[in-house]
């Protein structure tokens, strides 16, 4: 337990002091939000309709693009190799690292995103449901992004490959995230059910992703 805490603390401190973590992801998020009305047009009604979807897609992309730093520096300087010899199995290491990524980019973005909805004329009654769905969904997003990062850790140009591999897997989180956030014409029953299913999907990801990441890291370490 102490070791796990040490691992988590190390990643949190590193991402805090290295910079380029949540700040950059946040900047990216803002840029997407600015580009959206520029592409679609400033009509307030249209923006209100697409606001939840736009915010979700900006969230998916920012979480994904900030994911490559989960393993890359540790892989380059060899500390990941040391971790394979440690007492903590690689599966647990990758779970901790994905958790750290969630704490440093998924969670802050999920809290900030709905508040930025006012830029897109988001219906104010939707802010808090959207925030709840995003906080829950971003756990799954971070763990899937961690899996993508692990699968491509030894590749020089893994960025595009990660997007191709991970974005299709984001489809369920996106769909249930949107309807769990109460967007659209769905009633409260549907929203509650979607929230439950989003929870279930997140749990599945929490189980599958660390094992996949652990196996992938081992294949690169050999």
């Amino acid at each position: 337990m102490k070791m796990l805490w040490a691992l988590l603390k190390r990643d949190l401190v590193l991402s805090w002091r290295q910079g380029g973590g949540v700040g950059t992801a946040f900047g990216f998020f803002l840029t997407v939000i600015v580009l959206l009305p520029l592409g679609i047009g400033p009509d307030a009604g249209v923006l209100q309709r697409i606001a939840p979807g736009g915010l979700w897609i900006a969230l998916l992309l920012s979480v994904l693009l900030s994911a490559d730093q989960i393993y890359s520096t540790d892989y380059e300087d060899g500390s990941l190799e040391l971790m394979t010899f440690g007492a903590v199995p690689l599966e647990v290491v990758s779970a901790i690292k994905s958790l750290a990524h969630w704490l440093t980019s998924g969670l802050p973005l999920a809290i900030a995103a709905p508040l930025l909805g006012f830029l897109l004329n988001l219906d104010t009654s939707l802010v808090f449901p959207l925030m709840g769905a995003m906080v829950l969904g971003s756990v799954g997003l971070s763990f899937l992004a961690g899996l993508g990062a692990a699968v491509t850790v030894g590749l020089r140009r893994g960025g595009l490959l990660v997007s191709l591999l991970v974005l299709p897997l984001y489809v369920p989180v996106l769909i249930f995230g949107i309807s769990a956030g109460g967007a659209g014409t769905a009633g409260p029953d549907i929203t509650a059910a979607s929230f439950a299913i989003l929870f279930a999907i997140t749990l599945v990801i929490l189980v599958v992703a660390p094992f996949g990441s652990g196996a992938a890291l081992r294949a690169y370490m050999r």
């Binding site: 899996l147 699968v151 030894g154 591999l165 299709p168 897997l169 489809v171 369920p172 769909i175 249930f176 309807s179 659209g184 769905a186 549907i190 979607s194 299913i197 999907i201 599945v204 599958v208 992703a209 996949g212 196996a215 992938a216 294949a219 690169y220 050999r222």
Partner: peptide
Amino acid sequence: RAAKIAAIVALVGAVNVPIIKFSVEWWNSL
């Protein structure tokens, strides 16, 4: 190495295919 990584990708994908199919149907029916 490619074989290992590709196997992981295929297996994770296989776990997700039914979930994706289900969620797309849900989305569509809404």
